[in-house]
């Protein structure tokens, strides 16, 4: 197993980031732009993609897969809507743990080997995809209701006006992935309801 970098383990409470425009305002109007504890709403799919990007910092893939691949391979399947597009935009983001992000849109389940992430957008064929990679070291992330309970590893969901995620630890263990305790602490933990029928 690969060790997590120290910065992902320490308590993550960064300073508020200042939007570019606030910088401009600070220059023209003396606006410090320091308060962002209650910011304006984020674009939802961009926010979901930002969660996916962050999950990479809290996940240990088996050494073999991690060292074999020069990039962090994020594969997307499912509905070709805003979520998939927002994930595709992650390719332009800074490297995570020393690896550039590479995004691929998949058409067949067999193509998923070698992916670090499999992002499943929407409900359609959700079960088929999670079943195809259930024993492979692929972190599955979905945004459909019940994604994690039905065999996926991380499911994104809305609670009030916040985006949250639930984790199916059984599915993560099955896939041979190690999720950091800090990630588990932030998540809602759910039971795997798919395993009974699959065994």
């Amino acid at each position: 197993m690969r060790k997590l970098p120290p910065d992902a383990r320490s308590t993550v409470t960064g300073r508020c980031r200042t939007p570019l425009l606030a910088v401009a305002l600070a220059l023209v109007a003396g606006w410090p732009g320091q308060a962002c504890a209650q910011s304006a709403p984020a674009e939802e799919n961009t926010l979901k993609a930002a969660f996916v990007y962050n999950f990479a910092k809290y996940t240990d893939w088996p050494d073999e897969l991690w060292s074999r691949s020069p990039t962090l391979r994020v594969c997307t399947v499912g509905e070709r809507g805003g979520f998939a597009q927002a994930v595709a935009a992650l390719a332009n983001k800074p490297a995570v743990r020393g690896k550039e992000v590479e995004v691929r849109q998949l058409a067949r389940p067999e193509e998923a080997s070698g992916c670090h992430f499999l992002v499943v957008a929407g409900r359609a064929r959700m079960a088929e995809w999670t079943r195809a990679v259930r024993l492979a070291p692929v972190l599955t992330v979905g945004d459909a209701e019940g994604f994690a309970t039905s065999g996926g590893i991380i499911g994104l969901y809305a609670e009030g006006d916040r985006l949250r995620f639930e984790i199916n630890q059984e599915a993560a263990q099955r896939a041979g992935l190690k999720l950091s305790s800090q990630l588990l602490k932030l998540a809602r933990l759910v039971k795997d309801e798919s395993s009974a029928s699959q065994r």
Binding site: V12, R17, S39, A42, T46, N54
Partner: peptide, 26 residues
């Protein structure tokens, strides 16, 4: 907004969860 969205991936997860708001609440 575009400027704000660009910052989202730079936020740590804990901050995303406590500060990033959805426009369409559940």
């Amino acid at each position: 907004s575009a400027a704000a969205d660009a910052e989202l991936t730079e936020m740590p997860l804990e901050q995303l969860m406590s500060e990033a708001k959805l426009r369409d609440a559940s």
